[in-house]
Design a protein around this nucleic acid. Structure first.
Lengths: 131, 131
DNA sequence: CTCCTTGGTTTCCAATAGGTAAGTATAGTT
DNA sequence: AACTATACTTACCTATTGGAAACCAAGGAG
């Protein structure tokens, strides 16, 4: 490894407290689990509020229980809002908050980089499989 | 939601194939699990090859078994190299690849953003706890 | 009086993750 | 002959995750 450019971009991590480090790690882990990111993307793509059932359809492959958990978690972290209209049958709408939108924006470069380097990953796996 | 700037930065996602989407999601999920990112950061901070035991010490709190699994996975994805020196007792060294280093660089802005917005997350949780 | 609807919650079960501890291989040291 | 060191691997056990499906509330329709 002789790569040097913007090494300090990584080294800022050294200036973090353990608490910050742990919290950031937790957020990243939580949000990059199987469903949360996809859920946020669905809500972003919708461009407005979505009812529970609509999210369920569009995310696809997720169970009711897990979607409920996911939405509650995202709400707790302030990334989405949950609005209950006390009708019968009840109507609940979920919507991306500005914070959630900003977060989603931050993930884009990483996302993009991974897709650009998809061939490199495939090659690495192929190489590893030979041995 | 009236935020509009660089909306297309997110919408590029729509141009992805399902395969790309799934793969990118998988990579992100894998690498942001409990140990992989931390392991990469340790190897980066070392600035050179590290033996298994040294990584074990520095990561801290990880078991031998899980570290082995983590390192193998990172190697398979081409983010680190594993070099076995056939001595007795055996010596094995792990080192960040340029791909691994680049990946780590990509995570920095997101990491940074999360830490900057830590107060917002804390506030959201506090708000949620009240209800 | 029963069914339908929505947005869950609850229960049960199977799969996965992760930890501890012990085993393994082998040359060198005591 | 016993012991050490290294880098795992294996066995075993527990805890968490996730899916399917049943249950629930409450008013309106038939």
């Amino acid at each position: 490894m002789t790569v040097q450019p913007s090494k300090q971009a990584i080294d800022f991590c050294a200036t973090m407290t353990d608490e910050q480090d742990e919290f950031a790690r937790e957020m990243l882990e939580r949000v990059s689990a199987k469903w949360p990111l996809r859920t946020l993307q669905i809500l972003q793509a919708a461009g407005g509020p979505l009812r529970f059932s609509r999210v369920l359809e569009r995310v696809g492959g997720i169970s009711q229980k897990v979607l409920t958990q996911t939405l509650r978690m995202l709400e707790r972290d302030g990334l989405i809002t949950r609005t209950l209209y006390p009708q019968v049958p009840p109507r609940v709408e979920y919507e991306l908050t500005p914070l959630g939108y900003e977060f989603l924006l931050q993930t884009v470069p990483l996302w993009h980089w991974i897709i650009e380097h998809l061939p490199a990953f495939t090659a690495a796996r192929h190489e590893a499989a030979k041995r």
